[in-house]
Design a protein around this nucleic acid. Sequence first.
DNA 1: TTTATTTAGGATAAATTTGTCCGAAATAAG
DNA 2: CTTATTTCGGACAAATTTATCCTAAATAAA
Lengths: 144, 144
Amino acid sequence: MFSKACEYGIKATIYIAVKSMHQERVSLKEIAEEVNSPVAFTAKILQSLAKSGIIDSHKGPTGGFQIEESNIDAIKLYDIVNAIDGEKIFVGCGLGLEQCDASQPCPVHDKFVGIRDNLKIMLQNTSLYELATGLDIGLTHLKR
Amino acid sequence: MFSKACEYGIKATIYIAVKSMHQERVSLKEIAEEVNSPVAFTAKILQSLAKSGIIDSHKGPTGGFQIEESNIDAIKLYDIVNAIDGEKIFVGCGLGLEQCDASQPCPVHDKFVGIRDNLKIMLQNTSLYELATGLDIGLTHLKR
DNA sequence: TTTATTTAGGATAAATTTGTCCGAAATAAG
DNA sequence: CTTATTTCGGACAAATTTATCCTAAATAAA
Ligand code: FES
Ligand code: FES
């Protein structure tokens, strides 16, 4: 469904959000530990999320990653997935035709579009805030 | 969403079904052309589908692939996806946790399970027969 | 029986994704 | 200013997926 990079990116962003809601910046190392992801690979992903403007990064001692608290509710799961995996999952043909086009549909078009749109809507309606809150109160988990 | 192998496999199977409904066997070469897929790679996929019992293969002149006509309605899209990509897409965690478990859920669990289950149900309810019929009457297309 | 045709299957290669390493740049603190 | 810490960014490596090549095996027909 999502790439590994995207899975790590989502988990990392949620963890950063939790810390940010407690006015704490968090280091790459801590993130990778909490999210159970390879450190250097996670660094790349966070770098790209920072460039996308979803998270903020600061170098040097006391540096690390954070998310402006006022943004946490506005950031949707959709934004993270779109930033890392791109929009292909939201607009691409289920059978890999170069273009998904209702006027020239593939055999699964009608049935696939519904699922694809539901996924998109779900991601657009899911805020980083609610995901972070669930984690913060111990309702959900980032590793097992 | 699906792997390339799965996309090719679905398209190939639908094409074979159409031909089988007209009592025709079809060669690898023809399939790859109609499906716009690499010949040798398609061969591997068809080989595995044959081993899974979804399609039948015959060697030699006049050989090729076919599907027993009485099975075309019983075969579901789910069977093809499951044979090629496995069940991970139907039971796996959206964030890649080793196990999707409602008693130890990841942050997206509740929202993800709905999408995942809808996909599964859709695939289970979609027969090869209806996909092949749509293609046969020119309503849908395997390439553009 | 010989030949032509077609799938089976193993080895290999290319492309992509995932993951590592290391020096550079920024920056906080002594 | 110096040092320690942390992210940045490029090069590189490993793993996986996608794709190719070639020979073997089966088999239909001359
Ligand atoms: S054309 Fe294939 S999903 Fe729309
Ligand atoms: S635990 Fe992640 S989807 Fe169920």
